[in-house]
Design a protein around this nucleic acid. Sequence first.
DNA 1: GGTATAAATTGAACGCCGTTTAATTAAGCG
DNA 2: CGCTTAATTAAACGGCGTTCAATTTATACC
Lengths: 200, 200
Amino acid sequence: MGRRSDHSREEIQAMAITAAAKLVEAEGFQSLTARKVAKAIGYTVGTLYHVFRNFDDLVIHLNARTIDEMAALIQQQIRKKRNPEVRIRVMAEFYVQYATDHPDRWRLVFEHQAPRGLPTPELMKERRDVMFELVAENLRELAPDRIPHEVAHTATALWSGIHGICILALTGKLYLGGAFSMVKLIETLVDSVLNEFRHR
Amino acid sequence: MGRRSDHSREEIQAMAITAAAKLVEAEGFQSLTARKVAKAIGYTVGTLYHVFRNFDDLVIHLNARTIDEMAALIQQQIRKKRNPEVRIRVMAEFYVQYATDHPDRWRLVFEHQAPRGLPTPELMKERRDVMFELVAENLRELAPDRIPHEVAHTATALWSGIHGICILALTGKLYLGGAFSMVKLIETLVDSVLNEFRHR
DNA sequence: GGTATAAATTGAACGCCGTTTAATTAAGCG
DNA sequence: CGCTTAATTAAACGGCGTTCAATTTATACC
């Protein structure tokens, strides 16, 4: 066969990313392969390599979409709230929610890594700090006279901590059960860091 | 060739784990393969499968050793300290130290996962909570009259948070530089959680 | 409208992976 | 020394990411 032009480059890209997302959710990110994605969209691997530089490039595009989806969901939720502290708590709540609802897509964002030595792709750089900046924005509103550096520092510490709880819980490395829950752990962390932020 | 009996089963296991550790440190955990390990110890893959159930089994043994090494290092450090708060801070400091010194071995512990559906191997179950329990011990000493559940909860929140900072920093997903450092982030988290723990 | 050009798509190949298995080799024993 | 048993190997399998020559088709031009 040859040139079909049923779909443009961009369409094939989008189809591939969508198919990859579904495969990851259905079978886990560890068993995502280029051949499966190609088959799912009715093309062969070759076409995939015509549209993505390599398999990592496909994964990076999928991860970018995952981050965009998650950020959109979270921003939609905090738009309903006026109080910056409440907003931060809602952000944490829905971060956990998204991670729990799409564990494999979420883990792929953090556990994928391009081959050693290569620089972080632009697509990821743009999205790396989106959550941190969202937290920092609201911390700033919570205490407008704090110096920016301090705000950014606290935002980083808080959000990294929340992320840690998510990762360990989702990978089964956290004892949960009984009165133990992710939600309560996150609450403790948010309470602690916010109190510390206020009182000094 | 055939039966050489140069080494016992246990010796070959230990040699393989050591070789795997070196390969991981030298080339990254992503490119660890059974054939490389076999070659490094002067055997073929077949022998490796005679001694481990499969490749995941080898990785699990390596991870167990990594956790043991790290825990030993940390316990050795806190033995020098009497104050439980100081001990917790030293634990955090050396956790970061180990992760930074052996990034690929450390990441392998947390990013490896046995094929979907299989239960957590005993080898890992025994080691999963070692750090949490170490923290809880010292929290308990810090506030002997708190109920055990509360202590365990705080220990989990604190250590997950520290872990989150480590993971994000080591995978290049954290803005560091200038006055930003892992050590300072960790300090903030420890301060926050310990203060919260004391004041309520 | 036929034809040359350029682009999309394929299928087959490459070297590597984890894993399995039959065949070989050597050690231990009577 | 021959037999048994177990360790070790080499080869094979299917699947992986990746590359590329060959093929097919859409498009631009005369």
